[in-house]
Design a protein around this nucleic acid. Structure first.
Lengths: 194, 194
DNA sequence: TATAAGTGAGACAGATCTGTATCACTTAGG
DNA sequence: CCTAAGTGATACAGATCTGTCTCACTTATA
């Protein structure tokens, strides 16, 4: 069964299993031994595909960031106006918070556990958050004057990150509802003064 | 030198040193050996004052929560109107983000590292966040109709938690400025419709 | 002064951590 | 068939982790 093609599949299998464990138990609390045991692979198999645990974490984050980016493409792509795109992003978060195995945002957790800005894990997680902010700016740029985009994108990002955090302590529902309303009000206000 | 009275001082010294290390490096990444080495105490001294590392973490969080509560008393107590109290809370966060040894919010980090809701560390950190939300409700209750307080308090909490998170990736300044403006707009709008 | 609380130092146990090495095995491609 | 890539299993090294234990020492209090 295994060779060239399957090697990539096995690597991906490790990434997804590590993702599940990191998400549930955290990065430091999840040991290599547990990852390989749950993935059903040998330790050397893991270390042939990843240079270190840090390298594995970075790859997990990058894979997850890419998956989120694709989801966002669908979400924001289907909606028509900027306001609808923003609302769709908030709706997506609401569904995410309701999903049965929700354990908070892996990128927020990574930034909490690896607080040193020069650390590779910090950089990977911060990059994902900046990408989301850039996406927000792109959406807003289609319907707002350029000098309004930056501040409003920042406010929307603040609302979303705050709602994600509050979802971690069981307040996702109320947080995302009030955040979505606040976002709608802000956009309506900005639209009126355009 | 040491006995009854000094025992409490030594205990407090351990708490504050552990606080500094946890804040900078995280909970799992900070070992007992490093804490006692930096605090300059024997290992048994630490284990006589705290039942376990988990117990120490909980005490550190509770001590920090109490200190924040007292600061908040001064901040919100000095301001007059609800709007001024809220603005003062945002201002306090702006100054916090600018402080030289800012390393994010210890409670957010604790919730990220100990994601299990039944864990004692999770409970202690979540309690502090709920206390802050309750404080927000109390402030708003003096100037808003009761049926508006809950939703607006949630929005303000979401903005603050989001700004704290963004401060961890170097965006504290812009986040807190836009969050404070959004909060002011929300309060002004609620005030008009009263 | 005698007692007991509190401490520092350090050894120690047992578990766990990351990462490396070895060996037998399977399987794909020439 | 034969070679070489890839793998599983396992032992291992060296470090680190939490938590316990002992012993000598200091100091406040009775």
């Amino acid at each position: 069964m295994p060779l060239r093609a399957d090697a990539a599949e096995k690597r991906q299998h490790i990434v997804e299993m590590a993702y599940r464990l990191f998400k549930r138990d955290g990065f430091h609390a999840t040991g290599i031994d547990r990852i390989i045991a749950e993935a059903g692979v040998a330790k050397m198999t893991m270390y042939r595909h990843f240079p270190s645990k840090t390298g594995l974490i970075v790859d997990v984050l990058n894979w997850r960031a890419e998956r989120f980016r694709r989801q966002l493409d669908q979400i924001a792509g289907a909606a028509m106006t900027s306001g609808e795109k923003i609302a769709a992003i908030f709706d997506w978060h609401e569904r995410w918070f309701d999903s049965p195995d929700f354990h908070g945002c892996l990128f927020q957790h990574a930034l909490a556990e690896f607080g040193e800005p020069t650390h590779a894990v910090f950089e990977a997680a911060a990059r994902q958050k900046r990408d989301l902010q850039q996406r927000m700016r792109d959406v807003l740029a289609h319907s707002l004057p350029a000098d309004r985009v930056e501040a409003i994108a920042t406010t929307l990002s603040t609302l979303i990150e705050g709602a994600i955090f509050l979802a971690g302590i069981g307040q996702g529902k109320t947080a995302i509802i009030s955040a979505r309303k606040a976002a709608a009000d802000i956009l309506a206000s900005a639209g009126r003064s355009r």
